[in-house]
Every structure is written in structure tokens, then in C-alpha cells.
Design a protein around this nucleic acid. Structure first.
Lengths: 110, 110
DNA sequence: CTTATTTATCGTAATATTGCAATATAGTAT
DNA sequence: ATACTATATTGCAATATTACGATAAATAAG
């Protein structure tokens, strides 16, 4: 084995897991934080900001894009990447809801 | 290679990535959702709820525990697992803050 | 003590991820 | 066309993850 059994879970569970997984690497967290921090999204210097080689960064960007967390568009010679606000908002809502359900629990044992 | 270069990133980035990674699998999302949904946390039937073999579920529970997302305590013959509210709250706050920063952006290109 | 019952661990095969050197691609400028 | 710059893709080695059968450990019931 070694392959995730995606077919046994709901589409939402798989989509969520995919996005969480995309954020499940410190380099990709760092990329997201950088993209959020920089006010504009003309970001031709991500490679210089990270302690990783250019192909590695490119691959991480690709994974973030595949997970729908960032968007990219060609901007002349450079490429413009930015965070997909909706995706982050969706994740945030999901966790906020989980939080709410936990707050409303009566029995608390552990 | 194949090993994550954790030492190049901040402790917070690594901790966050670890928790996100733990949520980065549909089975573990399903486990969390079940633990949240069930009002009490005496949960001896997680295996029956999931479409996976018992050792696999046990392993997923272990990963969630290692990431600090759930807590477990022995309850006679069964084991009592429940969600760590603080961990979820921390993730939620992180994303809420990211969201806020994105809302306040002036330039929006992509 | 023996037998269930429940959860954990070990061992292992299949697959995925991480990281980077080398190379390719695409646009800009001279 | 040539050189330059920025990003992507390929190929590959090292390591990690996923899944499960077999087995162990621990407690409960008879």
C-alpha cells in the first residue's frame, strides 16, 4: 500500500485534507506568510526569501496552486503569485465551526 | 533527499505545519469530525466508523496525538480520545489572522 | 487460569514527498 | 540572433507515509 484511500471519504473531507496537507510543510507555511505579508502580489523574489533551491521552491508553489491555496498569473518575465482569499476563508470557517461545536460540549473528560 | 529541512524555519512555522500535516489526510479529518460530533469523549468505536483496518486507525490516532490535536486517556478496557480544544483554537486564530491581513490588502491583482 | 475484547506495535510492501542538479522554457533586452 | 533573467520541468536519490496482516499487551469476564 502507501496510497491514500480517498474514495472512502466525502469530497469535502478530501478537499479539506488536501488543503491542510498543502499547508503541512514549513516551507509552504513560510511561502503563504510571505505572500500574505507583502502588500502587493507581484512576487518575483520568493526564492531569495527562502532557504531552499529554486526548483524546490517552484515545486512547493505548484503544490500550493494545485491545492487551490494560491493563484498565479504571468506578469511579463516574472510570475505573480497571490493567496486565494476564499480558500483561506473556507478553512477558517471550518475550524471556527469545529471550535464552536467544541465550546458547546457538555461533557469534558480528557 | 526526502527529509524536510525543519531547521531552516521558525519553531512556530514547524509546529503549525505539523498540525496542518496531521489534518492532511481524509481519514484523520474524519476522525476529528467524529470526535467533535460525539458529545462525550468515550470513544471505543472509532474503528467501526471508519473504512480502514484497526491498525491503520490506531496509527492515525497516534499521529493526531503526536501533533497535539487530540488527547487520550485509558478508561478501563477502552481508551478515551478527545479533541484538544486549544490546538484547534490556535489553528483557527492563525487562519483568522491571515484572513484579516488579506482583507486589509489594498492592491488585489490575481 | 483461560478466554474474550480492545488497543498498540512490528514488519513490510506500495506509494508519496522532499530536495536539488541539470536542463528546458519563455520573455526582455541588446 | 545572442545574451540575460526568471520560472518550470525532468530525473533521481533519500526519506516518509499509508495500509494492513500478524502479533503483542492489557484489562475484563467467566
Amino acid at each position: 500500500m502507501g496510497a491514500t484511500k480517498t474514495d472512502h471519504f466525502s469530497e469535502e473531507q478530501n478537499r479539506l485534507a488536501n488543503r491542510m496537507k498543502a499547508l503541512g510543510h514549513p516551507a509552504r507555511i513560510a511561502i503563504m506568510e510571505y505572500l500574505i505579508q507583502v502588500d502587493t502580489c507581484i512576487c518575483g523574489d520568493i526564492v531569495n526569501v527562502l532557504p531552499l533551491a529554486q526548483p524546490t521552491v517552484s515545486q512547493h508553489l505548484k503544490e500550493l496552486k494545485n491545492a487551490g491555496l494560491i493563484k498565479g498569473s504571468i506578469e511579463g518575465t516574472a510570475i505573480c503569485y497571490c493567496v486565494d482569499k476564499d480558500a483561506i476563508a473556507e478553512l477558517q470557517r471550518y475550524l471556527a465551526n469545529a471550535n464552536l461545536q467544541l465550546e458547546n460540549k457538555e461533557k469534558q473528560c480528557c
